[in-house]
Amino acid sequence: MVVFHVNGKERRVDVTPDTPLLWVLREKLGLAGSKFGCGEGLCGACTVHVDGQPLRSCVTPVGDVRGKKVMTIEGIPENHPVKKAWLAQEVSQCGYCQPGQIMSAVALLKKKPKPTDADIDSAMSGNLCRCGTYGRIRRAIHAVGAGASTKGGKKP
């Protein structure tokens, strides 16, 4: 039995502690927003926050998050500035990588409310997007940094 917190609620799961957090979230807790892309921490589609830090849940054994606070895409409020900016900039294409992108962006903006391009490169280069939404992700992050999304954002 592993006990930890997910999106503010205590969860107990009966799995072997080596099971990656990603599959516990997806299969045991019904939180399928975090995605499987590579299984090796190479693509970032599975990114969640553990005690506020972005982490690749596909290579994080659930035993390592015992007693910790996990936040997934499902825990990000609908009116979060990052989500609003994502909509305003019309970032998504296929959408598969976007939960991971958003989790990385939320973590970046918490640490650096007005990130530079170099900050974005460094925080976001672990998140692959096969559809090529990088330019819009960059714009959306800058828009949050500039506070634009709180005023309804710009049309793309």
Binding site: G30, G33, F36, I73, E74, L87, S92, G95, P99
Partner: peptide, 23 residues
């Protein structure tokens, strides 16, 4: 007109169901 995509909200809150999410 550059209308916003109808599928974007589901794609940014984790609720969009891809094949791998079917259960």
């Amino acid at each position: 007109k550059p209308l916003h995509r109808l599928d974007s909200p589901a794609k940014i809150n984790g609720s969009a169901i891809f094949g791998i999410d079917v259960a």
